[in-house]
Write a protein that binds this DNA or RNA. Structure first.
Lengths: 237, 237
DNA sequence: CCCGTCGCTTAACAATTGTCAAGCCGATCG
DNA sequence: CGATCGGCTTGACAATTGTTAAGCGACGGG
């Protein structure tokens, strides 16, 4: 890896408190690679050879089953993936695909496990990361099981607003068909839900979002940290 | 804690490889308590004071939102819960309630974190447990987003069969309304789905399940380890 | 023993969501 | 500049799922 890349990731919560020797061992045989958009990085079912860190761009984790496909997570920088699979040396449960051009660090999973054993600070950071991934997935599952698609969309919009410091106008960060998949609905249904939410203080022109009446929108979404975060450095974008 | 309880949990994967001093520190101020059925052990949103281990009985983790409630996980012995919240000192995302009379070990979360820092073997065990919880929740989310309710039910039945060594006849381990909630549907819809699956080789009389045609049922469920496990000592029952 | 409660089922109906088909629009490219 | 492509929207329709209400049957308490 290049020195510039090393300095960049040394600041991450995952690596900030670890020893120099551990960091050196972790990065020795790591790659920092750039991928074009729409490239499949890993397939579900593959053995967990690498731990991944997205440093630039946008990556989605997708589940496949019986010919169907669904976006489970959208990862914006800086986020990790395949951590649980690497720690347990188990097959990936989800595939990963770049959405935009992205840069990803690949760390051999054996190095990851060695560093975990060798460095207590790193072990703690890993545990925190695993716990946050778990909690992100619990939130997503609650979102799916407790809210209707319209409510999920309203929640998503308010989360995005919160990520931007409460902005009332911003651009949708995802293609709508991708957003629909992430929210567990079809693009057609997303279109309908967007139109329906005009009555609840939401205006969308193409990718431009305007929250006209935040209170009304929250009357639909009932935003709560137990579903919608805060997600300090976490799951969706 | 009583000596009998101590010996019992010392064998668990979580505690098997840890040092005697760590084990002693972890169990010193721990409780092993028995709870009646239908008792709420923790509420969502509470601060994470205790790490929990179910040693007997049956416990459900439930999500609440806006007056709605949903069973996210069903824990059979021996399983843990609240691990992620304790490690990150964050509020519980789900409530926990006994289904049957249950015995639960409660370990102060500060002791848990201290043991993690003090004992590398314990840290590794914790990381594995966290990773397995994460993967269980990913599987559940995939189940929800990729399969219809009928397919989820078929998958659930085949998983239960697998847990019983491939038995073709067994008793439903859960009340149907609870199963319905876990599978993300209403009890009425579960009734319909059960009846519909008679055409696919499934017969259910009250709580007694008979798999008449496993191949036909799997043609609905398309069971795969990437959704249905194996779950060595894991999530649902 | 009877009665009330509770869980389950069924049926009719309503709401939500998915499917299919068509058309629009903006971007890209020859 | 015009053609083509892909993503988005819309509408009509179908399937799935939720809702409401009623009834059945097992269980436990009076």
């Amino acid at each position: 890896m290049r020195d510039a890349s090393l300095a960049e990731i040394r600041e991450l919560a995952l690596f900030r408190d670890i020893g120099e020797a551990t960091f050196e061992a972790l990065t020795r045989s790591a790659y920092h690679q750039t991928f074009p958009p729409q490239v499949t990085l890993i397939h579900q079912g593959q053995s967990a050879d690498f731990f991944h860190v997205v440093t630039d761009g946008l990556v989605e984790l997708v589940g496949n089953w019986n010919g169907r496909e669904n976006t489970m997570v959208v990862l914006r920088p800086v986020s990790t993936f395949t951590l649980a699979a690497c720690m347990t040396d188990a097959p990936y449960l989800m595939a990963a695909r770049t959405i935009e051009q992205s840069r990803v660090i690949l760390i051999p999973s054996s190095d990851l496990r060695a560093a975990f054993a060798a460095d207590t600070a790193f072990a703690l950071a890993i545990a925190h990361e695993l716990a946050n991934c778990y909690r992100g997935m619990v939130r997503h599952a609650k979102d799916m099981k407790l809210r209707t698609s319209r409510e999920r969309l309203a929640g998503y919009i308010l989360r995005q607003s919160a990520l931007r410091g409460g902005a009332s106008r911003f651009e949708l960060p995802l293609e709508k068909r991708l957003l629909a998949s992430f929210l567990g609905m079809t693009p057609e249904n997303l279109s309908r839900a967007l139109r329906a939410l005009r009555d609840d203080g939401l205006a969308i022109d193409a990718t431009h979002v305007t929250i006209a009446d935040r209170a009304a929108l929250d009357r639909v979404a009932h935003v709560t940290p137990l579903i919608d975060g805060p997600e300090p450095g976490a799951p969706d974008r």
